[in-house]
């Protein structure tokens, strides 16, 4: 029988395969996992796992120190230090000089995504899960008018393309700092890579 959920180990592998092998330049892939509150019956899409690859835009902004204002950068770096401390238990796991480097907009957007969720079909990920129809939004101007807080936030942080594809138990979201027009190949790849019989055995 098919397992109820993808295992955590295979999730990371699936997300990595999706974007490392793609022709297009995707900055990140996220799996939004569905769950149902047994008391209220509400359906929630929450963070399942994510893979951040980065982009040429990240490198350019880091070199030019233009990722965000000085105050915003200090805030991001402080949060990064706190998160590092959280996962390392306050000791060990040195960040070296990495924390002092610019935290780019798309890195920040990915980090903030870990705190987000979509209740009962809200937001583009929620709509995609409920309708079963994928969403492909190319261009910052289109993200800005998509009537979705997450799409607007993505555009604010420099994402130019956001794609959501419904899969078993959730939604796969891909994001890029490039404007990427529809690709049947990547849509098909999401379906194959996120089928239960891939990798679980």
């Amino acid at each position: 029988p098919a397992p109820a959920y993808f295992s955590q180990e295979t999730l990371q592998h699936r997300l990595q395969i999706l974007i490392e092998g793609a022709k297009e330049s995707w900055a990140y892939a996220i799996f939004w996992q569905s769950s149902v509150d047994v008391c209220s019956g509400a359906t929630l899409l929450g963070w399942g796992d994510g893979y951040y690859k980065g982009s040429e835009d990240d490198k350019r902004k880091r070199k030019a120190n233009t990722a965000a204002s000085a105050a915003e950068q200090e805030h991001r770096k402080r949060v990064l230090r706190e998160l590092n401390s959280l996962i390392s238990g306050g000791a060990g796991f040195s960040m070296d000089d990495a924390v002092e480097e610019e935290v780019t907009d798309s890195e920040w957007f990915f980090l903030v995504s870990m705190t987000q969720s979509f209740l009962n079909g809200t937001g583009i990920p929620g709509q995609v899960f409920f309708s079963g129809a994928p969403s492909w939004i190319a261009g910052g101007d289109r993200l800005a008018v998509a009537h979705c807080d997450r799409a607007l936030q993505a555009q604010t942080f420099g994402i130019q393309t956001m794609v959501c594809v419904p899969v078993a138990n959730g939604v796969v979201e891909l994001g890029s700092t490039d404007t990427i027009f529809h690709s049947a190949e990547i849509m098909s790849k999401v379906k194959v890579v996120f089928s239960f019989n891939s990798f679980e055995n």
């Binding site: 955590q8 990371q12 949060v79 959280l86 990495a98 480097e101 980090l111 870990m114």
Partner: peptide
């Protein structure tokens, strides 16, 4: 990010490790 619960720690740890690699390769 302050509200990242326990279940997301693995994703976060991977992100930070990969970030170190990306930054050192920049």
């Amino acid at each position: 990010p302050r509200a990242v619960p326990q279940a997301r720690k693995a994703s976060l740890a991977r992100f930070l490790e990969k970030r170190k690699e990306r930054v050192s390769n920049t």
